[in-house]
Computed example of a mutant assay.
Amino acid sequence: MSAASAPLDRVRPPRVAAPLTRDGNASARVADALREAIVGGEYPPGSRIRQEEIAERFGASRVPVREALKALEADGLVTLVANTGAWVTRLSLAECEEVYQTRERVEPLLLRYSAPHLDDAALDELERLAERMAETADVEEFLRLDREFHQRSYAGADTLVLGDLVRRLWNTTQPYRRAYTLMIDAHSQRIVHDEHHMLVTALRDRDFDTAERVIEGHIRRTRRLLASHPEVFETLPAIP
């Protein structure tokens, strides 16, 4: 079996961030470290985030930890419950379906804003990322490369609202993209990789209508598979 068709079933163990120093903006540092940990799957949806544990882990007081959690709530990564605590945001199947339907509609628009401003160097980098995704059988590496690929495809857009909205939607669906990646078979993997290359080809050809259709179908494929696996959502812990 080639590397491109090998099953994506090797998940890396959680990474433990080094303690933070007390100088500088401690809340931003805690937020950055927690964001990376949540996006990387160290804290699954519905898991409790205890302020005292985070403060001890990162060598910070509780005040910057609280500020960091508020920033992550704005990012869509954390749910704060008054007088109760903080949890990693989790979605029900219905919520996830709605978020993905939103992504199907707004990401093609963001791509349309971005595409005319992607030069040859940017497109070459997208091609390299697509090739690296096809070569890896490591789930976490694939997810990191995939996120970078799509963020770079949107990097040419200068928007007031849309870019931030798409980043938030990506944050809230990251754990479900991981579940999707673990579920798909070799045939579906090839389709995913083909779509990445098709997107780059359409962007090179300045065929923005096709590029929009590719990204819309790319997102829809994930939504439809997740909808057929409600157990992904039923096994997650509830947030009070």
Rank of each mutant, 00 (worst) to 15 (best):
K70C: 11
A71Y: 04
E98R: 07
A82C: 09
L93K: 07
L72D: 01
A86P: 01
E95R: 08
E95G: 12
T89F: 07
A74F: 13
L69Y: 08
E98T: 07
L93A: 14
V78E: 07
E95C: 06
T102W: 02
A86T: 00
A71I: 04
A82K: 15
D75S: 12
L80H: 12
E95M: 06
S92T: 15
G85C: 01
L80W: 10
V88A: 04
V81K: 05
L93R: 11
A86F: 00
L91V: 01
E95P: 09
W87T: 05
L80I: 14
V78H: 03
E97H: 15
A71V: 10
S92N: 11
E95K: 05
E73I: 05
A82S: 15
V88L: 13
N83F: 15
G76C: 06
G76F: 04
L77V: 09
V99E: 01
S92A: 13
W87N: 05
R90C: 06
V78R: 00
L69G: 12
R103E: 03
T84G: 10
N83K: 15
R90H: 11
D75R: 01
Y100K: 03
E98L: 06
E97S: 15
Q101F: 07
R90Q: 08
G76W: 00
E95Y: 02
T79N: 04
R90E: 09
L91W: 08
E95I: 00
S92Q: 07
E95Q: 15
A86S: 13
T84D: 13
V81H: 08
L91K: 01
L77G: 03
D75W: 00
L91C: 11
A71P: 06
A82N: 14
L77I: 08
E98S: 13
E98Q: 13
A94G: 13
K70N: 14
L72P: 03
V88K: 06
T84Y: 07
K70T: 14
L69A: 06
L72V: 05
T102A: 09
D75I: 00
V99L: 00
W87E: 07
V81E: 10
E97M: 10
N83A: 14
A86R: 04
L72E: 04
E95F: 10
R90K: 15
L80Q: 10
S92C: 11
E73Y: 08
L77P: 04
L69W: 01
V81C: 02
V88T: 10
A86I: 03
Q101D: 12
L69C: 11
G85S: 05
A71R: 12
T102G: 10
L69D: 09
V78G: 08
T102Y: 02
L72G: 09
E95L: 07
L77R: 04
K70D: 13
T79M: 02
V88G: 06
G85Y: 00
A71M: 11
K70P: 02
Y100W: 08
A71E: 12
L69P: 10
G76N: 04
L91N: 10
E73D: 11
R90T: 11
A74P: 02
D75K: 00
E97D: 15
E98P: 03
N83Q: 15
A82I: 12
